[in-house]
Design a binder for these strands. Structure first.
Length: 268
DNA sequence: ATGCCCCATTAAATGGGA
């Protein structure tokens, strides 16, 4: 089973790029973030025509928005409000996979603004609250024994080699100690395992995002790993391979994020 | 070295991204 997650930065603007990604990867399950589209304008038919008969999404005007498309049946689609807002950042559905069903969580954690100070920057406060809530919600509403996969744009690069320069980035939102501490609590809450770092050692740089502002993103390579795929322990033995589609960042009118792929063995 | 950008909304600015 092949799973792909991608912060597409507007699904309507980049539907053609999405078709290319789907043709190249032939995923079974596709998770998107920052679709930036109210549900009534979502380009459902184009994606369904590629064989994704099952879908579950939640979008709004202009911002945010998350979507799951699947060749495998989906059940029990849910939209999760976070920190009292209705801002389309967390959905879930059960995926009927050969080798055992699992619950898939597609999450878009707030970016958090510029100043890494929750007192002066309420966007940063919102981000911290959002991660705190996830850390409490998962053990309360779910169990570490469940088969679950959590994917998405988590907007936090936790490891030193998840950013281009740890020392220069330590005070920059996405790599500050307080974010990384809360991120770790969220991960530990139901014992999520980092399915991408399973394949790439911690001492090797790995990025999934490069700023639009960098003149030459490829040469400068000042990236961050903001997009994640986690699995609960039950699925650890099914991990097969991964891929980060770096070259997609070099396509015409790209997203600033690239697709991240995980392959699971059919038999658990 | 968060910066020179990009997107959506709405009408040439603004807010958000990270």
């Amino acid at each position: 089973m092949r799973l792909v997650t991608w912060n597409i930065n507007s699904v309507r603007l980049r539907i053609d790029l999405l078709m290319k990604v789907v043709e190249r990867l032939n995923p079974d399950v596709l998770c998107l973030q920052e679709t930036k589209t109210p549900d009534e304008f979502f380009p459902v038919d184009a994606i369904v025509s590629k064989g994704f008969a099952h879908h579950h999404f939640s979008g709004m005007k202009g911002y945010n928005g998350v979507a799951i498309f699947s060749r495998l049946p989906l059940e029990d689609g849910q939209v999760h409000k976070r920190v009292g807002k209705n801002d389309c950042r967390h959905i879930s559905a059960k995926v009927k996979r050969k080798g055992g069903a699992f619950e898939l969580h597609n999450i878009y954690i707030p970016a958090g603004g510029y100043e890494p100070d929750p007192v002066t920057n309420d966007k940063f406060q919102h981000k911290l609250d959002f991660v705190d809530e996830l850390a409490k919600w998962f053990p309360k509403e779910r169990s570490a024994k469940d088969a679950m996969i959590a994917v998405g744009d988590f907007n936090i690069a936790p490891l030193e080699n998840d950013v281009w320069d740890h020392k220069k980035m330590v005070g920059v939102v996405s790599h500050t100690p307080v974010e990384i501490e809360k991120f770790a609590k969220f991960q530990k809450s139901v014992d999520f395992y980092d399915a991408v770092r399973h394949f790439v050692p911690d001492d090797k740089k790995l990025f999934s995002w490069w700023s639009y502002r960098a003149a030459d993103w490829d040469t400068a390579d000042k990236g961050r790993r903001l997009d994640h795929i986690w699995v609960t322990q039950k699925l650890k033995s099914a991990l097969k391979s991964h891929e980060v589609l770096r070259d997609v960042r070099g396509w015409e009118r790209p997203s600033d994020h690239v697709p991240v792929v995980l392959d699971l063995k059919d038999a658990a």
